[in-house]
């Protein structure tokens, strides 16, 4: 399993109910279901991913995150998870509000645009950054709302979303000493646990 998913799964307690936004091939839900007896649903729109979830026996609903989560009741889930999709939705602020409405807690991961590599790429090359966390070109990237660790935290403060926990990891998916000290500069991927 991807290291960021491993990190997230450590945060999820036994028997929790989950909603995984953009659940991919269902790896996280399947692993948690097997090892922590969690129950829940994934939302996905990619056909290959839907088929992979069907094969795995993961509950998955074809649903576009840009349409919101209006079909789910308040606090329906213990956790609403969204990994590496915040930057790809039309309105990250709205989906964030929806996540903390539907879930008692929300877990979000995104590529940190404040990472030193990204900053120096743009500063020195004068071109849109391409890295392992941001592998796309400017013209084909699905990442339309990139943000930094600082942007995210400012947004949360402004909108009364409590940050319960933060982890930043580097390209090797490790949480180094520098990243702990200066997350906005040395964290390549940010992982947050938040609530309303």
């Amino acid at each position: 399993m991807r290291d960021d998913l491993q990190l997230i799964s450590d945060w999820i307690p036994q028997g929790a109910t989950l909603l995984d936004l953009g659940c991919g091939d269902g790896t996280l839900l399947s692993w948690l279901g097997e090892h922590k007896q969690t129950r829940g649903y994934g939302l996905e729109i990619n056909q290959d991913n839907l088929a992979a979830c069907f094969e795995k026996g993961v509950n998955v609903l074809e649903q576009d995150l840009d349409g919101g989560l209006g079909n789910f009741q308040d606090l329906r889930f213990d956790y609403v998870v969204m990994t590496q999709a915040l930057q790809a939705v039309l309105r990250p602020d709205q989906i964030l509000n929806e996540m903390v409405r539907v879930g008692r807690e929300a877990i979000i991961t995104f590529p940190n645009f404040g990472h030193w590599w990204v900053r120096s790429y743009l500063a020195l090359k004068g071109r849109m950054p391409v890295s392992s966390a941001l592998p796309y070109e400017w013209y084909n990237t699905p990442n339309i709302h990139l943000c930094t660790v600082q942007d995210f935290e400012t947004h949360c403060r402004k909108h009364h979303i409590q940050i319960l926990e933060r982890q930043v990891i580097n390209r090797h998916h490790r949480s180094g000493f520098l990243a702990k000290l200066w997350p906005n500069l040395f964290g390549e991927i940010a992982i947050y646990r938040v609530k309303a």
Partner: peptide, 19 residues
């Protein structure tokens, strides 16, 4: 179909949905 899916999700049943 979504009415059925929503009902099942509210009831906490195992359901997958494709459109």
């Amino acid at each position: 179909s979504r009415e059925i899916v929503d009902g099942l999700v509210h009831a906490g049943r195992d359901v997958s949905y494709a459109e």
